[in-house]
């Protein structure tokens, strides 16, 4: 099958334009993070006139970035971990059992994904505030409240992705394990989980990324002590000076963990994210 002669040219022109559009902001983020303050306040320069690593040191002092970072790390890790655990059990049930209510459960869980966040925000805010006053449980403006909220955000996709993974593992494997005397849970732990490790890691990364990047609930459900990066990064812009070099440095630092994780595991994530759409 021959390619037309113009195709390589069209390919480089098209991909070049897309690349320019996609990469320019990333280039600006990288180069502005190593510029001194006066270089990001005056006219824009494509190439830094002076290179300095000061923004990476100063950004921790302008706002309490370390605290925001720790909050994001705790909230996202715990949410990811718990959400994966819950998703494993639910996905195993969907994949290996035929029970009344199975379809309703999957459809309901998936459809919550499409509802506007703003619809839950007000009632959830009220529930957390009132639960706090009624039971003495601190949910509003606490990391616990944020963790509970975030882990349900990634749950639908995680269950869906993992059920797909479990489906691709032959049931003969768990039946063999059950003949050897394991119950269904034993089969899950000893056979299915080891075989699905890449999928589980991908789901954990996805859940972590979801929590790490969430803005809407973080902006309402946190106070100064539980603030996450999503809201904290805006602190640089409310000062008299806008420290763009520090903002870019901080953006870079908070992006590295998730981008690295995504690129390392993109193959598994892509399989999972697109499985439903392609099927």
């Amino acid at each position: 099958m021959r390619e037309p002669r113009w195709l390589p040219w069209a390919r480089w022109a098209g991909l070049g334009l897309l690349g320019l559009f996609t990469l320019t902001p990333l280039y600006v983020m990288l180069t502005s993070a190593i510029k001194p303050l006066r270089d990001v306040q005056g006219d824009f320069h494509w190439i830094p006139t002076t290179i300095t690593l000061r923004p990476f040191a100063d950004m921790w002092r302008t706002v309490p970035l370390a605290r925001y970072f720790a909050n994001s790390l705790i909230v996202s890790s715990v949410a990811a971990l718990v959400s994966v655990l819950i998703a494993i059990f639910a996905a195993y049930a969907i994949s290996r059992f035929r029970f009344p209510g199975r379809r309703i459960f999957s459809v309901t869980v998936l459809s919550t994904q499409m509802f506007p966040g703003i619809l839950f925000l007000l009632p959830l805010f009220m529930i957390y505030v009132n639960l706090g006053t009624a039971l003495g449980v601190e949910l509003y403006a606490s990391r616990t409240g944020l963790i509970i909220t975030y882990l349900t955000f990634s749950l639908p996709f995680s269950i869906w992705m993992l059920a797909g993974y479990f489906d691709s593992i032959p049931t003969a494997l768990d039946e063999a394990a059950q003949v050897d005397g394991s119950g269904p849970i034993g089969a899950l732990l000893r056979v299915v989980l080891p075989a699905a490790t890449p999928g589980i890691v991908a789901v954990a990364i996805y859940a972590f990324m979801t929590a790490w990047g969430e803005v809407l609930f973080a902006s309402v459900m946190t106070d100064e002590s539980s603030r996450t990066l999503a809201v904290g990064l805006q602190g640089y812009a409310t000062e008299n000076d806008v420290y763009w070099n520090q903002i870019m440095a901080a953006s870079l630092v908070v992006s590295v963990p998730v981008v690295a994780g995504f690129l390392l595991l993109q193959r598994y994530l892509v399989q999972g994210l697109t499985a439903g759409a392609v099927k």
Binding site: T22, L26, V28, M29, M209, L229, I247, S255, F262
Partner: peptide, 17 residues
């Protein structure tokens, strides 16, 4: 991989840029 970076970036980091 480069094309996928904006999708992997936390929303606020990309949008602030």
């Amino acid at each position: 991989a480069l094309f996928l970076v904006p999708y992997a970036l936390p929303v606020y980091a990309g949008v602030i840029t």
